[in-house]
Design a protein around this nucleic acid. Structure first.
Lengths: 406, 406
DNA sequence: CATATTTTTTTCATGACTTGACATAACCTG
DNA sequence: CAGGTTATGTCAAGTCATGAAAAAAATATG
């Protein structure tokens, strides 16, 4: 294969007539997706340029495939037969998202419309926990989620697991927040969920959370950097509505951007990495946190109380984050920064400093201002984004879904 | 338009039979492209999965459109009718690339195969030059190039202009190397080349040079950062064989990455920007350069002579470049850095330090080594990449070319 | 020079779409 | 409640690109 792009665009050899059908099915489906509310067959015909007979056949197929349902005839006041509204099915295939985060485990099911239909959380302290035990626990939550939504006629078809660290295939390379190194989370989870028969994907938490935000804004915002704070600082980058994964999927290591070349030493072996200044632990310094309290909460509590050391540390963190983000923005020309994860809680404290550094250091900021604001989704962003992984694939290529069903 | 991707994939309403033809034409064309040497109709049939009759008809169309030619029947020794080799036409449509660089003007024509068929360079000192005069001069070079290749039956169909600085539409926002600010280079060039009737695109020099390198490696290397040195330091980023432009096309501002937050002041208003340490002028310091000498040449001359100040400055520059690139690689997970522009000349002096910083600061370098090497193309990389812009579009979407011809 | 072999082209059937006409369904108006 | 109006479903004929099979073209071999 000399041209790496060849298989992307025409994967299955020559295009036969069937391919036309697939293309038009995709076209119609995408119009149903994009429509604000229910849309009728006649409207679809007008919008797509296809004829009514063709639309009728395609809609029939979409309904049979459980992607679309008739939403009941919406009487429009005028004379004539009322149009039958068509909408994405709320009882068809669904995606399961699982998240291993610093404070516990989350499971989430999202339907075709992107709506969260199930969300469960189990607090868990990770100190010294065995990966297999954690993933067994998570597998149980997955089963429970699948059963819970089955009652609403939703069929979970695929699962994605979010982990806080770089992932290689299904293997978690390093997740300091969990104390994991080279854990084959994909295999462990697959073992626990064999009964469900779901294909499993494992991905970085920041990437998935960014993906969740992309959907949460209904794709009106399709260029942004999502900052995900925790023990590690990660970033999910969305360019032109697509997640930037890098050549091996390890993009977004924001925490190890150099903020000061001869600065504080970092466990990674370098000096002056962002996370030595801006992670919650770095802000808290040596001060211990009461058990069961999220470090971000401890920070805001102390800051609200006017603790001078904390305020100074927040200042340093904001500046460092601003410098690191300036680098990202200079390289990628992105107009929006979303502060997510722990930073969503701290955003009112750090946004100003971040904005100041960006205004000063990003070349294009002079003629196109850059927005910094907290993310929309809360701590469940990654779980939701994970659940959306399958939904998104299905939305992009409904024909492949039909092919897989046969 | 709620889903921003909808128009990408099915732009022209419903897919009719014609669309099938387009898809298969693209498929066949891509196989001709990917083939090592000439390829016969029968081989194409086997490779694409289409039948011989279909191939015959499509090839007929490709030949009529001047994209493909019969390369003469290659007798293969065995019995039977010899296969007729088909190859990309070397006398069909061609792309024109123009480059305004620090030391002069370049014009370049590239044919469908990617071969450079014409290359001209005119030295020019930019101090105090009027943009309109420069672009007039360049327009004359463009005309000469078009005429020169017309003798070889090549038809120039589109032009792209490379400029050293961020571009907005056809407007050069700022090009310190030329002393230009907000110059509508596209319009000025269009005025001078009206007679040729070419569509004109203006783009950043680093982006285009990266694109040139992508083709120079025959797309075998499809994830890299191309560093382009000059008065300004820019970067062209290729991810998955695609140029990363950012949301407004201003990506790759490597020169303004913060290397030291309280470092040297930069004309941009910030402090510690890479280019205050690593641009040729920064390396030379106050020392004057003989007129007509490229600064990079002056640097290597002094370094070869063992000048201590120069060697120290090179060291500082290499370290700074390494830090800046580490940031890029941490964010984007790219495995290769190509040193282009002026840095190609300096690569033997700086590579070691750049590699050392990357090994230390890039998280993934621990388990996947990163390559740093000089770029393949020389100073004409941007002109060649510019000429390839149109060729690339045509290669990606030959059907659109046929549509535009009608 | 006839025959075998391989490549290319021609001829005909298939499938998906369009157009246009008509039938049916469900609602509004008077 | 009859008749007009609008939405949807169904049927035929026509178009176009493809696949399958057969014919034609061009060469090597005996």
């Amino acid at each position: 294969m000399t041209d790496s792009r060849a298989p992307d665009r025409a994967p299955r050899g020559g295009a036969r007539q069937e391919r036309l059908r697939e293309l038009n099915l995709e076209l119609v489906f995408r119009h149903v997706l994009a429509a604000e509310g229910p849309i009728s067959r006649t409207e679809l015909a007008a919008a797509t340029g296809l004829t009514r007979p063709t639309i009728t056949r395609i809609v029939e197929e979409l309904i049979a495939g459980r992607l679309v349902t008739e939403a009941g005839s919406a009487r429009h006041g005028r004379a004539g037969r009322p149009r039958v509204g068509l909408a994405l099915s709320r009882s068809g295939p669904a995606g399961l998202g699982l998240d291993i985060r610093a404070d516990g485990l989350a499971a989430c099911v999202v339907d075709l419309t992107g709506a969260v239909r199930h969300l469960a959380f189990a607090p868990l302290a990770f100190a010294g926990t065995d990966p297999a035990a954690v993933l067994d626990r998570l597998a149980a939550m997955a089963s429970a989620a699948v059963e819970a939504v089955a009652a609403e006629h939703l069929t979970v078809v695929a699962a994605t697991l979010a982990v806080p660290g770089p992932v290689d295939g299904g293997v978690v390379r390093s997740a300091p927040a969990l104390g994991w190194t080279d854990v084959d989370a994909g295999a462990l989870l697959a073992a626990g969920t064999r009964r469900l028969g779901l294909p499993i994907t494992v991905d970085n938490e920041a990437n998935l959370a960014a993906h969740g935000e992309l959907h949460a804004t209904r794709r009106t915002l399709d260029n942004f950097v999502y900052v995900s704070g925790g023990l590690d600082i990660g970033a999910g980058i969305i360019l032109d509505g697509r997640l930037v994964r890098g050549s091996r999927g390890w993009s977004g290591e924001l925490g190890h951007i150099t903020v000061d070349p001869d600065g504080r030493p970092c466990p990674c072996g370098s000096r002056g990495c962002l996370q030595t200044y801006a992670s919650p632990q770095a802000i808290l310094g040596d001060e211990p946190v009461p058990d069961g309290t999220m470090p971000e909460v401890a920070i805001t509590t102390r800051a609200d109380a006017g603790d001078a050391a904390t305020l100074a540390a927040i200042d340093t963190a904001g500046t460092a984050l601003g410098i690191a983000l300036s680098n990202v923005l200079n390289i990628l020309d992105i107009g929006t920064v979303l502060l997510g994860g722990g930073y969503a809680l701290l955003s009112s404290w750090v946004t100003e400093r971040v904005e100041a550094e960006i205004a000063r250091r990003v070349l294009s900021a002079a003629w196109a201002p850059i927005t910094v604001r907290p993310a929309i989704l809360g701590p469940d962003a990654a779980a939701i984004g994970a659940a959306l992984t399958f939904i998104d694939r299905l939305r992009q290529d409904p024909a492949a879904w039909f092919a897989s069903q046969r």
